[in-house]
């Protein structure tokens, strides 16, 4: 599903050059549940953003379903994020002016596709937000906001979910709930899930754990 080869990325800061990714190569099959772990600044998020087409590498390629993300135009990567990839962030990133349903259906609306009400109801039920359809993000707890963000990522029926520290801002109970949800999505719908995390507890739940240090893959363990 994803074939990454020789990915390099350097940043230039006032303190000098930083190598975010150093010749990273990786293969991910469809339906995998992967955790990427590593220290802050090791290059985990950079890798995730490149797969999502939000950042460009200096060199190397990322083939997602045989299409090279690094060679896509801005419009093509936008379409990819609407249809193939769901992105989840640590800080939820819901739009405060939109209610739960509007936030969830936003990528589909941007795509100009019709809203499938049955699928919406199912998603809301799965994430436990039935009855909170019209609530605005400020009226939701952190856990509920993250579940709404997951629902938004899932609503377009993507083949890949990229989650950047999805439990980083949640307590243990809500973290467990979010992980349960992501696992269910992976098992029931066959969606490939790629999680970036600091948490060992979260990484333990993945079937494959990739460690990154200083922009290099240092270990790739399958359970």
């Amino acid at each position: 599903m994803i074939h990454i080869s020789n990915l390099n990325k350097r940043y230039f800061t006032v303190d000098g050059e930083i190598t975010a990714l150093d010749n990273v190569s990786l293969d991910i099959a469809g339906g995998e549940f992967i955790a990427i772990i590593g220290k802050s600044g090791s290059g985990k998020t950079t890798l995730l953003n490149m797969i999502a087409g939000l950042d460009n590498p200096d060199s190397g390629s990322i083939l997602l379903n045989n299409a090279d993300v690094t060679k896509m135009t801005g419009k093509q990567t936008a379409v990819l994020r609407r249809r193939e990839i769901g992105v989840i962030y640590q800080f939820y990133n819901l739009i405060p002016e939109l209610n739960v349903v509007e936030n969830i259906t936003l990528p589909t609306e941007l795509d100009g596709s019709p809203i499938n009400s049955e699928w919406l109801a199912e998603i809301l039920k799965v994430v436990g937000l039935s009855g909170r359809e019209n609530a605005y993000p400020t009226a939701l707890s952190g856990g509920q906001q993250q579940r709404a963000a997951i629902a938004r990522a899932l609503f377009g029926k993507p083949s890949l979910i990229l989650a950047d520290e999805p439990t980083g801002n949640l307590d243990n109970e809500n973290s467990a709930e979010v992980m349960k949800l992501l696992k269910a999505m992976n098992e029931e719908y066959g969606i490939t899930v790629l999680i970036v995390t600091h948490s060992d507890a979260v990484a333990e739940q993945a079937r494959r754990v990739i460690s990154i240090a200083d922009g290099k893959i240092t270990s790739d363990r399958r359970k």
Partner: peptide, 15 residues
């Protein structure tokens, strides 16, 4: 920030 969120969920430049 709104632009960042919209981009991450697939908004194009025209959006």
């Amino acid at each position: 920030q709104l632009r960042g969120i919209l981009t991450s969920v697939g908004a194009e430049s025209k959006d």
